[in-house]
Amino acid sequence: MRARSASGGPAAPLRFALTAESKIVLARLTAAIVLAAAVSIPLGLHRSYWVIVTVIAVLQSGVLRRLTTARAANRILGTVLGAAIFVAVALVVPDGVGLVLVLAGLQFLVELVIVRHYGIALIFITPLALLVAVRQPGVSAGGIALERIIDTGIGAALAVLVLAGEFLIERRATRRRIADVPEAVQ
């Protein structure tokens, strides 16, 4: 949010600064996005951007590894449950007003729960996104649901892999620092 002066004059200029936390998140995101592109393109994934979106959604939440890993698990579980809901709704094949009402209902549920629980929100986000994507000619509901689950699983796994890699690098650096400390100091 931009700060205003006490006199109500023009807004203060925006300032951009990278904190230590934001540098960690940025490094994780950069590594994971490069890794996601390097993995998903050779695999020939039709919607490789789902892998990249998953990596970003999981890793952008902060520096705490446990929270980020939980977010990856929430992403996978919410996507699987949401895909099941999507397939059930797609069997009814809503069109016109029915489709609009289903989309509005799903969006309402997303807004209702997203602040409280990311995983539960994904149960409603997934069918919302897939109902829009399945409108393309030649796309089957089961096929696109499975594709979403696989792409999300790959993205979440890559995000956790980046966290594990960072942990191992940090652990190795800590061991080196300890080894470099003279025994008299220890």
Rank of each mutant, 00 (worst) to 15 (best):
L128N: 11
V160M: 11
I178H: 09
R4E: 11
R177Y: 07
E147M: 10
G78I: 06
F108G: 05
T152Y: 08
V134F: 06
V89M: 10
F167G: 06
A37G: 14
E147I: 01
I41S: 10
T126W: 01
A88R: 02
R172Y: 07
A179E: 15
A72D: 04
L122F: 10
A84M: 07
A145E: 11
S7W: 07
L146R: 11
R135H: 05
D95K: 07
R71V: 05
V53K: 00
A17S: 13
V89G: 00
S7R: 12
V102G: 11
V58R: 01
L158G: 07
R4F: 15
I85H: 02
A84L: 12
L64V: 09
F108Y: 15
V110W: 03
D180N: 15
R28I: 06
Y118Q: 03
L109G: 01
L122N: 15
L109E: 07
E21H: 10
A70G: 11
H117R: 09
M1G: 12
Y49V: 09
L14V: 12
F16H: 11
K23P: 00
Q136K: 13
T68H: 00
A73P: 00
A90L: 02
V160W: 00
L106P: 04
L168Q: 05
E21W: 01
V51P: 01
Y118N: 03
A57D: 02
A38I: 09
R71W: 04
T79P: 13
Q186K: 14
L99F: 12
L26Y: 01
A17V: 14
A156E: 09
L103D: 04
A72N: 04
L99S: 04
V110I: 15
P42H: 08
I178P: 01
A3F: 10
L101V: 15
V39L: 10
A141M: 12
L146M: 15
V102S: 06
R4V: 09
A90H: 01
G142R: 03
A184W: 08
L131K: 02
P127A: 08
A36C: 05
P13Q: 13
P42L: 12
V110M: 13
G165Y: 01
Q60E: 10
L106Q: 04
M1E: 14
V115C: 02
L168T: 06
G78Y: 08
F16W: 14
I125Q: 05
I56M: 10
L45W: 06
L163W: 02
L122I: 03
V134G: 00
A179F: 10
V34C: 14
A90G: 01
A179V: 11
F124V: 02
E21I: 05
S140Q: 10
I125L: 11
A121N: 02
L101H: 01
A156P: 11
G153T: 13
V100L: 12
T19C: 03
L122H: 12
V97Q: 10
A141L: 10
H46Y: 04
F108C: 05
V25E: 13
S61P: 00
G82A: 08
E21R: 12
V139C: 03
V87A: 04
R66N: 00
A179L: 14
G119N: 06
I149Q: 05
A70W: 05
